[in-house]
Amino acid sequence: LDITFHVDGKNIHVHGASEEVVRIIEELIKNNARAEEIKETLERLLR
């Protein structure tokens, strides 16, 4: 699975993920999660 995301100002662009995963990533970023935390969360979800 190949998910890429980047933050452009306040806009979060996520590619290669389901809508549910996109929402989770957006929440994590809004809550100022570190990249490592986001990665760990995604790995748990995608197991």
Rank of each mutant, 00 (worst) to 15 (best):
L1N: 12
L1P: 08
L1H: 12
L1Q: 13
L1D: 10
L1Y: 14
L1M: 13
D2Q: 11
D2L: 12
D2C: 09
D2W: 12
D2A: 10
D2T: 11
I3M: 11
I3V: 14
I3G: 02
T4I: 14
T4N: 08
T4E: 08
T4P: 01
F5T: 01
F5R: 00
F5P: 01
F5I: 09
F5N: 01
F5V: 06
F5G: 01
F5K: 02
F5C: 03
H6W: 14
H6Q: 10
H6M: 13
H6A: 08
V7M: 05
V7F: 11
V7G: 02
V7K: 03
V7T: 03
V7I: 13
D8A: 07
D8V: 02
D8R: 03
D8T: 02
D8G: 11
D8M: 04
G9E: 03
G9F: 03
G9R: 01
G9A: 02
G9C: 03
G9Y: 04
G9S: 03
G9Q: 03
G9V: 01
G9T: 02
K10M: 15
K10W: 15
K10Q: 15
K10N: 13
K10R: 09
N11E: 15
N11P: 14
N11S: 12
N11Q: 15
N11M: 14
N11G: 07
I12N: 02
I12T: 02
I12Q: 02
I12P: 01
I12F: 14
I12M: 07
I12W: 07
I12E: 01
I12R: 01
I12D: 00
I12K: 00
H13N: 08
H13S: 09
H13Q: 09
H13C: 05
H13A: 08
H13W: 07
H13D: 09
H13R: 10
V14K: 01
V14Q: 02
V14W: 09
V14F: 06
V14L: 09
V14T: 03
V14A: 09
V14H: 02
H15T: 13
H15Q: 12
H15S: 13
H15W: 14
H15I: 13
H15V: 13
H15R: 09
H15N: 08
G16W: 06
G16V: 05
G16K: 06
G16A: 08
A17C: 07
A17S: 05
A17T: 04
A17M: 05
A17K: 02
A17R: 01
A17G: 04
A17H: 01
A17Q: 02
S18F: 05
S18Q: 05
E19C: 04
E19Y: 13
E19F: 12
E19N: 11
E19I: 13
E19R: 13
E20C: 03
E20G: 06
E20P: 03
V21N: 02
V21F: 08
V21T: 07
V21K: 01
V21E: 02
V21G: 01
V21D: 05
V21W: 09
V21R: 00
V22A: 07
V22P: 00
V22I: 14
V22Q: 06
V22L: 09
V22M: 06
V22W: 06
V22K: 08
R23G: 06
R23F: 09
R23L: 09
R23M: 10
R23D: 04
R23S: 11
R23C: 04
R23T: 07
I24V: 11
I24M: 06
I24F: 07
I24H: 07
I24Q: 07
I25T: 01
I25D: 00
I25C: 03
I25H: 00
I25E: 00
I25W: 02
E26Q: 14
E26A: 09
E26G: 09
E26H: 13
E26R: 13
E26N: 14
E26I: 14
E26M: 15
E27L: 11
E27R: 11
L28K: 04
L28P: 00
L28C: 03
L28D: 00
L28N: 00
L28I: 02
L28F: 04
L28R: 01
L28S: 02
L28M: 14
I29K: 02
I29C: 03
I29G: 00
I29V: 08
I29H: 01
K30R: 13
K30L: 11
K30I: 08
K30M: 11
K30V: 08
K30N: 07
K30D: 04
K30E: 08
N31M: 12
N31F: 05
N31G: 10
N31H: 12
N31A: 10
N31C: 06
N31R: 11
N31Y: 07
N32K: 11
N32E: 07
N32H: 12
N32R: 05
N32Y: 07
N32W: 05
N32S: 11
N32V: 04
N32F: 08
A33V: 12
A33S: 07
A33G: 07
A33F: 08
A33W: 07
A33R: 08
A33P: 04
R34W: 05
R34Q: 10
R34C: 07
R34H: 13
R34I: 07
A35L: 15
A35T: 05
A35W: 15
A35K: 05
A35H: 13
A35R: 05
A35M: 14
A35P: 12
E36I: 05
E36R: 05
E36P: 06
E36A: 11
E37H: 13
E37G: 02
E37R: 07
E37Q: 11
E37D: 12
I38S: 00
I38T: 01
I38R: 00
I38G: 00
I38M: 03
I38A: 01
I38C: 03
I38E: 01
I38L: 06
I38Y: 02
I38D: 02
K39M: 15
K39H: 14
E40W: 08
E40R: 10
E40T: 10
E40P: 01
E40Q: 11
E40S: 12
T41Y: 07
T41E: 12
T41Q: 09
L42C: 04
L42H: 00
L42K: 00
L42P: 00
L42E: 00
L42F: 02
E43H: 09
E43A: 04
E43M: 08
R44G: 06
R44A: 13
R44T: 11
R44C: 06
R44Y: 13
L45G: 00
L45I: 09
L45D: 01
L45Q: 01
L45A: 03
L45F: 06
L45K: 00
L45S: 01
L46S: 03
L46R: 02
L46I: 10
L46P: 00
L46C: 08
L46V: 05
L46N: 04
R47C: 10
R47E: 15
R47S: 15
R47Y: 15
R47V: 15
R47Q: 15
